[in-house]
Design a protein around this nucleic acid. Structure first.
Length: 261
DNA sequence: ACGGATGTTATTAA
DNA sequence: ATTAATAACATCCG
């Protein structure tokens, strides 16, 4: 689930909940997900901090903790945030912060593909993890240059976090669908106009998804999302959705709306 | 019961 | 040297 629009939704959620609160205690910390620091250090760093600012780069959420740097949350395939007052923590809570209004902020991660880490600043984290520019921060010329010389499939390139950060499997398929490009099309087969079309569609897909809070039920019915099953009716032409693999990932597309090059 | 699953990364291949 | 493809990671769901 958590691709750029989902993480942006988490960022805004954090902004209306725990942001500007003070962490009174770290109630749980799953060290399996911790990177860069050990558990004892992380607890010490986080206790007593105020959550000053929330930023996003690609699929990562950065929370500024004053002069102690940044808390970095990576959601992996199954991460979520939950803010609640009473009761048990949600299932698979990996980090649980008690804040000074009596609420709790839980970071859950069912499949442990996510991570919790600390960074001195956003830029150093981004560099250390070899992340490209955020997909929504890229202007067309930067996007065009980033794709220059690429030979792989258009979908694989969109998903390559070192080229641009934020697009995952689902939104890569959605972008290809709305751009009428088959996901396995080699980039060298796309001229500048087609690349610009992919760029514009990608932006529209991501911003629209953010507007709908990345809620699959709130996304337009004309989108491929919600029809990610072989044989589903294409929401555009009524044809049959096909499944294949591109770069080892499940890929859905409409053979009629996305003709082979 | 087994195959898949929206993530990244290390390794291998080209 | 770059770039691309593959396997592996942990766990749950259908």
């Amino acid at each position: 689930m958590p691709e750029l629009p989902d993480v942006e939704t988490f960022r805004r959620y954090l902004g209306s909940t725990a942001l500007h609160k003070t962490v009174e205690a770290v109630l749980a910390l799953d060290e399996d997900l911790l990177e860069d620091v050990d558990g004892r250090t992380a607890r010490r760093i986080l206790t007593g901090v105020s959550l000053d600012e929330a930023r996003r780069h690609g699929k990562r959420l950065f929370v500024c903790i004053g002069d102690r740097g940044w808390l970095v949350l990576h959601f992996g395939m199954t991460g979520e945030l939950a803010y609640y007052r009473d009761g048990e923590p949600p299932a698979h809570t990996r980090l649980l912060l008690a804040v000074d209004d009596g609420y709790h902020l839980a970071f859950t991660n069912q499949r442990k593909f996510g991570s919790v880490s600390m960074a001195d600043d956003v830029e150093s984290y981004v560099a250390r993890h070899d992340l490209g520019p955020d997909a929504l921060e890229m202007e067309w010329p930067e996007f065009r240059e980033a794709l220059e010389g690429r030979r792989g499939a258009v979908k694989s390139t969109l998903m390559d976090q070192s080229i641009l950060a934020g697009v995952g499997n689902v939104y890569a398929d959605e972008t290809c669908f709305q751009a009428h490009v088959r996901p396995d099309t080699k980039l060298r087969r796309l001229d500048t106009d087609r690349r610009r079309s992919v760029y514009r569609v990608m932006r529209r897909v991501l911003t629209t998804a953010i507007d709908r809070q990345a809620d699959p039920d709130a996304l337009p019915r004309t989108w491929l999302i919600g029809h990610r099953h072989e044989g589903d009716a294409c929401p555009r032409c009524g044809g049959s959705v096909a499944r294949t693999e591109v770069g080892g990932r499940s890929t859905y597309y409409c053979p009629d709306c996305q003709p082979a090059e």
